Simulated scan of single mutants.
Amino acid sequence: MLIIEDGTGKPDAESYASAADLVLYAGKFGVTIPADEPAQEALLRRAALAMDGKTWKGRKTDSDQALAWPRRGVELDCQIKPDNYLPARIQYGQMALATEIHQDDIDPVEKRKGAVTLERVEGAVTREYATIPNTSGRLLPAAPDRPSSTQFADYLQRRGLFAVRA
């Protein structure tokens, strides 16, 4: 049974959304998810773990809470949000991330093709694809822009592009 964070900073929370929430999300947005509830819950747990690795605004409300949210000191639109604030976009973002993880599971990076770099037509057709580098050890997105990134943007320390000076 998945333990859902409700804004109180549960020390054993595993997710911001339930499997039933994920099923509704998948239906609304036409994305593929596993049919069985244990697999759906596993995806939500994996997404929550991935979210914990992000640098969010503010700090955890309680050092004993299991997940990154709720947070204190979160400023959004020139307002400091309450300490028990759990944005809906965090929940939607987790569900979007769960579906992206599932897409990566069923369509692995090594099977994808890059952009067409050569196409020649003379009798027989020759087509060459760019190599998709994966030197970082991280999965590349299934699409150029992931819905979860959009959902999380306002709540991350850094948003968009930024330069790093070497």
Rank of each mutant, 00 (worst) to 15 (best):
M95V: 09
Q65L: 01
L76S: 11
L67T: 09
N84A: 06
L86G: 12
K54F: 06
D52S: 14
F29V: 15
R46G: 14
D77Y: 05
V74K: 00
W69D: 11
E100A: 12
E100W: 02
Q91P: 00
Y85Q: 07
R59Q: 15
K54R: 13
L86E: 10
C78S: 14
L97S: 15
N84T: 10
L44G: 13
I33G: 05
T61A: 12
K60D: 08
K54L: 15
L67C: 05
P82H: 03
I90V: 13
M51S: 11
Q94D: 12
S63N: 10
Y85K: 02
A68E: 04
A68V: 12
R59L: 09
D52K: 06
K81E: 12
I101W: 07
Q79I: 04
E37A: 13
D105I: 10
Q40E: 05
A68L: 04
P70G: 06
K54P: 00
K54C: 11
K60C: 09
P38D: 14
L43S: 06
L49P: 02
P70K: 01
I80W: 01
K81R: 14
Y92V: 01
I80M: 02
D36M: 08
D77I: 00
R45E: 13
A66L: 02
Y92Q: 06
D77M: 04
H102M: 10
A68S: 15
A66K: 04
Y85S: 10
G53D: 15
M95F: 03
D52W: 00
W69R: 09
W56V: 06
F29K: 14
T99I: 02
S63K: 13
D52V: 06
N84Q: 04
I90G: 05
V74P: 03
G58S: 03
P82T: 06
K60M: 01
A48I: 09
K54D: 12
L97R: 15
H102T: 11
W56A: 11
I80Y: 05
A88N: 04
W69S: 11
E37M: 06
D83K: 05
Q103S: 10
Q91A: 11
W56Y: 10
H102R: 14
C78P: 00
G30H: 09
G73M: 05
P82W: 01
R46P: 08
P87L: 04
E41S: 15
L67Y: 00
Q40D: 07
R59A: 14
P87Y: 01
D64N: 06
P34E: 13
G30W: 09
A48S: 15
L67A: 03
I33D: 09
A47C: 08
D77W: 01
Q91W: 01
A39N: 10
R72P: 00
R72S: 12
A39Y: 01
T32H: 00
D104A: 11
L43Y: 07
P82F: 02
T99V: 06
A98Q: 03
V31I: 14
E41P: 14
D52L: 07
D52M: 09
P34D: 14
E100G: 13
I101S: 10
